[in-house]
Computed example of a mutant assay.
Amino acid sequence: MEPAAPPLLQLSGLEQVFDTKRGKVPAVSGVDLTVGKGKVVCLVGESGCGKTTTARAAAGLTRPTGGQVLYRGKDVARMAKQEWNTYREDVQYIHQDPYASLNPVRTILSSVTGGLKARGIVKTKKQAREAAIELLTRVDLTPPEYCLDKYPHQLSGGQRQRVSVARALAMEPKLLIADESTSMLDVSIRVSLLNTLGALRDDLGVGFLFITHDLAVAKYFAWDGEIAVMYLGKIVEQGPTPQIIGDPQHPYTKALISAVCEPDPKLARAKKTIRLRSSEIPSLTDLPSGCAFHPRCPLYEPGLCDNELPILESIDSRRLSCHVLARDLKAG
Rank of each mutant, 00 (worst) to 15 (best):
Ala4Gln: 08
Gly60Val: 01
Asp97Tyr: 08
Leu61Asn: 08
Ala259Gly: 07
Thr253Lys: 05
Gln243Trp: 07
Ala118Gln: 09
Val17Gln: 05
Glu89His: 04
Gly67Pro: 11
Asp97Val: 10
Glu226Ser: 13
Leu276Gly: 08
Ala255Trp: 13
Val76Asp: 01
Thr273Gly: 05
Ala178Leu: 09
Asp316Phe: 12
Val69Ile: 05
Ile281Tyr: 02
Ala58Asp: 08
Gly73Pro: 13
Gln96Pro: 06
Lys125Tyr: 04
Ile211Ser: 05
Leu70Thr: 12
Gly158Ile: 08
Asp328Met: 10
Ile121Val: 13
Thr253Asp: 06
Cys305Gln: 01
Gly120Asn: 02
Ser47Ala: 09
Val206Tyr: 05
Lys254His: 03
Val105Ile: 15
Lys37Leu: 02
Met1Ile: 13
Leu185His: 07
Thr65Asn: 04
Leu284Gln: 15
Gln161Glu: 04
Glu83Asp: 15
Gly60Pro: 04
Thr20Tyr: 07
Ile257Phe: 02
Glu180Asn: 01
Pro240Ser: 04
Pro173Ile: 01
Gly115Gln: 03
Pro240Gln: 04
Ser289Gly: 11
Gly60Arg: 03
Tyr151Ala: 00
His95Asn: 11
Ser181Arg: 01
Gly48His: 06
Glu15Gln: 14
Leu232Ser: 03
Cys42Ser: 10
Ser12Ile: 06
Pro248Ala: 04
Thr65Ala: 08
His250Gln: 10
Ile121Cys: 01
Thr241His: 05
Asn103Ser: 11
Ile211Phe: 15
Ala199Cys: 07
Thr285Met: 09
Ala80Asp: 12
Leu33Asp: 04
